[in-house]
């Protein structure tokens, strides 16, 4: 983990490898999603989604909350199983793998959870050391050095002996990031990495994501609804809503997209194609209606 390239979130088209457009040929995409259908009970979460996530780039998946962005990450990592369609990661069909192979694949995937999801009976150091201990027999001195390097990369070497409960939200997320990259994965999935962070830790996280992707040579998938930060670091953007992909392309193209639903989401308009009100009967009707008294 060397020092990162100076990041400049304003420009995006300057990453070393030009992001492959979703359908363009060239390098084999890292993640290939085809005809994905997934529903939970009666709610349809994905209704025929095709997606290509290129290698070595930052791909952002954006959309309003409740559109199943986290679900998509769980599908990619094989924690959930789709009703139809396939997901290939690095050429392997995630949902056709046996448990052993799936676990082997997961050691090459890192995931940063929204809550951090640190094991709260272990110190920060032990949390980062956890995947290393589980998957390898490293001599203690080497393990220590590796963990300290990962913690150094996220700037938390000084907090190695703290318990997760003693960390602030931003620090917890950074510690979790150190854990996610402990096994030097080929890809990291970020689940809402910027949500609920103060501007400083947000800036720290943005630069960390950028740095890891460019210097660490890994591929990143960011799921987020924080528009400016995500557009700032992404090489390629998918906007999803109501189970479908609304638009995709480089950030510049997406941010000038004309579709009213995309516009509403990106501009943060309170009302538009997505309504402010949850579907309901007209207000006057409901206020005048008798009944629905409390009964007991």
């Amino acid at each position: 983990m060397g020092n990162g390239v100076p990041d400049h979130p304003a420009t995006t088209a300057s990453s070393p490898e030009p992001p492959a457009a979703a359908t363009a040929g060239g390098a084999e995409p890292l993640v290939r999603v085809r005809g994905l259908h997934f529903s939970r009970g009666d709610t349809v979460v994905f209704d025929g989604v095709d997606m290509d996530i290129p290698r070595g780039a930052v791909t952002a998946i954006m959309g309003p909350s409740g559109t199943g962005k986290t679900t998509l990450l769980k599908l990619i990592s094989g924690q959930l199983r789709p009703q139809a369609g396939s997901i290939e990661v690095d050429g392997l069909d995630v949902h056709r793998l046996g448990l052993q192979d799936l676990y082997r694949l997961r050691t090459r995937m890192g995931m940063l959870f929204q809550s951090g999801a640190l094991l709260d009976d272990l110190t920060v150091f032990e949390n980062v050391a956890f995947p290393l201990r589980e998957h390898g027999r490293l001599p203690p001195s080497l393990l220590r050095r590796l963990v300290l390097m990962k913690l150094q990369a996220v700037g938390l070497r000084g907090a190695a002996d703290l318990l997760p409960a003693q960390l602030s939200g931003g620090m917890a997320r950074r510690a979790a990031l150190a854990r996610a990259i402990a096994l030097d994965p080929m890809m990291v999935m970020y689940d809402e990495p910027f949500t609920g962070q103060d501007p400083i830790s947000m800036g720290v996280l943005v630069s960390l994501v950028h740095q890891l992707n460019d210097a660490g040579g890994l591929s990143s998938i960011i799921v987020s609804h924080d528009v400016p930060e995500t557009l700032g670091i992404a090489d390629h953007v998918y906007v999803i809503a109501s189970g479908r992909i609304l638009c995709s392309g480089p950030p510049a193209a997406v941010s000038t997209h004309a579709d009213p639903r995309v516009r509403q989401f990106l501009d943060g308009a309170p009302d538009g194609p997505v309504h402010f009100h949850y579907p309901a009967a007209p207000l006057a009707e409901e206020l005048l209606a008798v009944g629905r008294r409390r009964r007991w």
Binding site: K74, S77, Q79, Y103, R104, R106, T107, M109, G110, M111, F113, Q114, S115, A117, L118, L119, D120, F130, P131, E134, H135, A176, R179, L183
Partner: peptide, 10 residues
């Protein structure tokens, strides 16, 4: 999500 995190750490 600690159980999920374990799952993701294989």
């Amino acid at each position: 999500e600690q159980l999920s995190a374990l799952e993701m750490m294989a």
